[in-house]
């Protein structure tokens, strides 16, 4: 009994140990990694991708996947930027962007749950559609001149007691999502649907509603990261968020969540996102060429998954 518990704990802590190892190696190779300013920088970079990865965790736990997150980010970012550029109230803008993200996610969820389309196919299609809509909307050009409203500027560039606001936002989001996933009946249903959809349906869980909810939630989170990104860059790019879905999926998998659903936790995803962030930053500091960086990142993901495999067999 104790044995199996400690084993489970070890497998949960595996990703964390991996992160520590990478941090140590990077620090040895270039001590400037461990400076406060660099670490805050890493955290700020990670915060955007982590938000999306949190949503992806919920989706993958139900046994689904969402390839459209990057496009959702681009479209909501563009809409928010153009609203600001035309002088709209920043709070209202943020609100509209979050709602739009939620709707885009809900559309994914409805196609998957009610239309019974495989999540991979459904979101592959909406990924293309949302990206296309972004290009149509922006006419393929970046949107800038967002004005200087303090509340919007703070979102991406501000500091809260010396900590970047995006990091604070992501930490708060993590806390709330952790609570939802592990302490509420909704979280329990997410695991149940991914663990055994038929049994869940037969137990009176409205599987469709759970699915629509997780995709909507991910849409909201993609919009939130769009706002942070737009604020940081002070503009919206029509190509923003390209291949973010892959980083998000990688973070979820690195964190030990099973792609078949039902097994995993959101803390692992946070660690997974940090691993990717530290790698990106660390490889730059060490002076690895940007082409070779991709090889290293891919190899790390592969090694992590292989180790995970070994453990479960």
């Amino acid at each position: 009994m104790f044995k199996s518990n400690s084993k489970a704990l070890l497998s949960k802590l595996g990703p964390l140990l991996g992160l520590l190892l990478i941090v140590i190696i990077v620090t040895i190779l270039n001590p400037s990694f461990a400076t406060a300013s660099n670490i805050l920088n890493v955290l700020r970079q990670v915060s955007i991708s982590a938000l999306i990865a949190f949503g992806m965790t919920f989706i993958i736990l139900t046994g689904g996947i969402d390839l459209s997150v990057g496009s959702t980010l681009a479209l909501t970012g563009a809409v928010a930027a153009s609203m600001l550029a035309s002088g709209m109230d920043p709070i209202l803008t943020m609100f509209v962007a979050l709602i739009l993200g939620t709707i885009l996610g809900a559309i994914n969820g409805i196609i998957i749950a009610k239309g019974k389309v495989a999540p991979f196919i459904a979101t592959l299609a909406t990924m293309t559609i949302y990206r296309g809509l972004t290009l149509v909307y922006t006419e393929g050009r970046p949107i800038s001149g967002l004005g200087d409203s303090i509340s919007f500027q703070m979102l991406g560039k501000g500091y809260f007691f010396g900590i970047p606001v995006p990091v604070v936002t992501t930490a708060l989001a993590f806390g709330v999502l952790y609570f939802i996933l592990h302490k509420t009946t909704f979280g329990r249903r997410v695991y149940a649907v991914g663990g055994n959809e038929d049994a869940s349906r037969l137990s009176g869980i409205s599987v469709d509603r759970v699915k629509i909810a997780v995709y909507s939630l991910t849409g909201t989170l993609a919009a939130l990261s769009a706002l942070i990104l737009t604020s940081r860059l002070n503009s919206a790019q029509p190509t923003a968020g390209t291949s973010y879905e892959l980083d998000a999926i990688a973070a979820v998998v690195l964190g030990g969540t099973s792609l078949t659903g039902g097994r995993g936790w959101i803390f692992g995803t946070l660690v997974g996102a940090l691993i990717i962030g530290v790698l990106n930053n660390g490889l730059n500091l060490i002076g690895v060429s940007s082409f070779f960086q991709q090889v290293v990142k891919g190899a790390v993901i592969l090694i992590a998954v292989l180790i995970d495999r070994k453990k479960t067999v």
Binding site: K183, T185, R188, Y191, A192, G195, N196, D198, A199, G262
Partner: peptide
């Protein structure tokens, strides 16, 4: 196995699948 249980769940999580409301007032377990 395929329709009755969520095999990755604990005994208690399986028992509560049908009536989560019983153990939560506000949605918190």
């Amino acid at each position: 196995k395929s329709e009755g249980l969520v095999l990755d769940f604990s005994i208690k999580e399986n028992m509560m699948l049908t009536n989560l409301e019983k153990i939560s007032k506000t949605g918190i377990v």
